[in-house]
Structures are given as C-alpha cells and as structure tokens.
C-alpha cells in the first residue's frame, strides 16, 4: 500500500530535522516515531513535510503525540511547508493551534 515513504533525520546541536517524503499513513508511523527518538530538553524538532503528499489520522496521531511529549519534556516542535492536501488535514484537526506551521519563504516548497 505504501508508496516509497521515506524519512531522513538530520540532528544538529539544538535541532532535530525530520524530512518526510511520500505518504504518511498507519504503515509507517512507527518509523516516524522511531526517527524522532530521544529529544534533549530545550531543543527543537522540525517536521519538514514539503515532500509529504498525504497524511492520514495515524499521521495526525504522531503529530499530536509529539506535541504532548514536547510539552511534558520541555522541547518544541514545528511543521514546515505542508502541501495543500496535508495542510487541509492539519487544519481539520487544528494542529496549528498547538504546533507552529512554518512556510519558509526562502524555498518554493
């Protein structure tokens, strides 16, 4: 069912950047949660979703549980550059009220 989902993890001193590509559904949520891994207090997790074409409710669950972890462990999450299809689902679940959704002008994603 899953067509080429991929997640890249780039960790620097105070930021963990996860680049998600393809379709985020129930078959790959474990891979995403695993990729996040342990996060140090005070650091920032960026979900770069510019190449994500689809997200379903299990993907939303990953984002909501990141938000809950971040609040309890003292770090932050942001979502970068969602495509319209993904943005629509994020808005439906009001994800933006808790996780900043950033549209980086320096890129045309």
């Amino acid at each position: 069912m899953q067509q080429g989902f991929h997640v890249d993890r780039i960790a620097t001193d105070d930021e963990i950047r996860l680049a998600l590509r393809g379709e985020l559904d129930v078959s790959v949520v474990d891979a995403v949660e695993e990729a996040v891994g342990a996060v140090a207090s005070g650091s920032r997790v960026v979900m770069d979703v510019r190449d994500l074409s689809f997200i379903d409710s299990s993907g939303i669950r990953v984002l909501m549980s990141l938000d809950m972890r971040a609040r309890s462990e003292g770090w932050s999450v942001a979502i970068e550059q969602p495509q319209p299809a993904v943005r629509q689902v994020l808005e439906l679940c009001r994800i933006g009220e808790r996780i900043p959704i950033v549209d980086d002008a320096s890129s045309d994603g």
Partner: peptide, 10 residues
Amino acid sequence: KEAELEHFCT
C-alpha cells in the same frame, strides 16, 4: 497521563 496519547477520536 499528561504526555500520553494512545488513541484519539474524530
């Protein structure tokens, strides 16, 4: 618990 999200419901 605070940081626990097992299931949610739309």
